[in-house]
Amino acid sequence: METGFLIIAGITAVGAIAAMSLRNLVHCALCLTVAFAGLAALYLRLGAQFVGFAQILVYIGAVAILIVFAILLTRSNETESEAGRGRGKWSSLASVGVAFLVFSVLSISVLSGSMANRTAQDLPDISVKEIGLQLMTGYVLPLEVIALLLTAALIGAVLIAMPEKSAANGDAQTRVAHRSPTEAGEKLNDL
């Protein structure tokens, strides 16, 4: 095990755990980006350059930004409401237990499996061109399906998030009374 791997893996794991356990939602989102960046670094270590950069571009550049936007727009940026936390103490414990069980089963099977003697093959020279050729030949059908899916997601997201006309007008009246930065941001998104 190389130290480089251990450091990156540690950062990724700490980032992920912090993202799921911190109280402040914006801190969670920022820690999540640390985990995403760590994952990208792991991809780069594994020789998947294209995927590593795509991971940074999509997850840090788009998904993380979307998440912080959603946090601010829903005004849940302070802390989670106390009511929801206290009530489900036992169910939370049970969930963590389930997750721990999953982790231990997975790691036991990984450690005891036949993967111990698997060594890395020589990394073939994978250029971006090769990936592009594969996408355009063998994987052209999935590519088209993804294109369709992304278009549908784009239209769907816009339609869902678009405020209903009458409701929006009603909101505008109440909004003026107490305007906070997040609400101003919400307006900004409406533009």
Binding site: A16, F103, M115
Partner: peptide, 24 residues
Amino acid sequence: MTTLQGYLIVSALLFAVGLAGALT
């Protein structure tokens, strides 16, 4: 522990953390 196992364990940990978070 080989490197492959290292990656798989990190992946298992991430999955478990995500699962725990999504449930709690």
